[in-house]
Amino acid sequence: MNKETKIYIAGHKGMAGSAIWRKLSRAGYTNLLGRTSGELDLRDRLSVNRFFEEESPEVVILAAAKVGGIWANNEFPYEFLMHNLQIQNNVIEAAHNYGIKKFIFLGSSCIYPKHSPQPIKEEYLLSGELEPTNQWYSLAKIAGIKACEALRRQYEKDFVCLMPTNLYGPGDNFDLKTSHVLPALIRKFHEAKNRDHAPVKLWGTGSPMREFMHVDDLASAVLFSLQHKLEETIYNVGTGKDLRIDELAGIIQKLTGHHGEIFWDQSKPDGTPRKLLDVEKLKNKGWQAEIALEEGIIQTYEWYRIAVG
């Protein structure tokens, strides 16, 4: 692969996809290809095939997905399962049929069982029950991983699956109904500060442990995977460090300048008790995350403040 290789980034307007686009552009890749969901509905098999036939990409990075937090997964289980299956199936099938040289599939750490041993190794996939609140999304992602694994095994395709931990960063979703925990906390504390430091109500007990990685580190891992031959199907991508949600809330409260009280609504679900990835496999290949959590939150908060005016 060279800097003129035609690379299609599916989902290039999303948080992960846009970070990957920026990273590859800065690394000198000049032939990047993207389509918005309005221009190309990845759930439409015929449209996807027509796109591959007309554009003939050589490398595909699948960063497109329907994503959301606990509330969204609970409220829209059919869409989280079916839409993600449709997107994945169409793009993976087209990549196979049109002879794509290299394919990178982005999954999620939620594919692993709810009560996995910690830290979570890649081989723990399908070793236990999934977290019920996001099982629909998880099942779709597992199907995508297995499709890539089958293509590697049957056709010796260079299809690699990266499993990022909880992502955050510029371009994140800050909608309180559909966002993940870190951007939701940023918005809640920011808005409460602007209401004379009003109290903030947060879901659950604050006790679950979570790992967070800046989206630019994921983009770095994608670039690394493009530039190196990886012999296995699945690689975890994370920082290898986690913290309690109430600790995260304290950090974000401090960085946003909020001085009010925090109340925990224990009637709301906590989700998986702990979810820390074992990142040794990719680290041993030569990649590791670099952006510290507080540094990343400061950057994300600055982006959010500019975005909301």
Rank of each mutant, 00 (worst) to 15 (best):
L185A: 04
L130F: 07
G169H: 06
V200A: 07
T178N: 12
K188R: 13
S138V: 04
P117E: 13
F159K: 03
S116V: 12
E123A: 11
L218S: 11
G128V: 04
Y112P: 09
P170S: 11
L223Q: 15
S179I: 10
D175W: 11
L185G: 01
T165M: 10
I186K: 02
A143S: 13
G206P: 03
S138M: 09
F189M: 03
T133K: 02
E149D: 14
T205A: 03
G171E: 10
F159Q: 08
G171C: 07
M213W: 09
I186S: 08
D175S: 14
V200D: 01
D172R: 05
Y168L: 02
L202I: 02
A140F: 01
P113Q: 09
W136H: 13
S207E: 14
E131Q: 07
M163L: 15
S225Q: 06
N194Y: 05
T205G: 01
E122N: 03
D172V: 08
R195P: 08
T178K: 13
Q135C: 07
P208F: 04
R210F: 05
R153N: 12
K114H: 00
K193N: 04
Q118E: 14
H180S: 12
P117I: 10
H190D: 12
E156P: 04
A147K: 12
D172H: 10
N166E: 08
L125R: 12
E122K: 03
R210I: 06
L182W: 11
Q118W: 06
K193D: 02
A143T: 14
D217M: 11
D196N: 15
S207K: 04
P170I: 05
L151A: 14
T133R: 00
I145V: 13
R210P: 01
K146D: 05
E122P: 06
E156V: 00
L139R: 13
V215R: 07
F212M: 02
V181L: 13
K114D: 10
H197A: 06
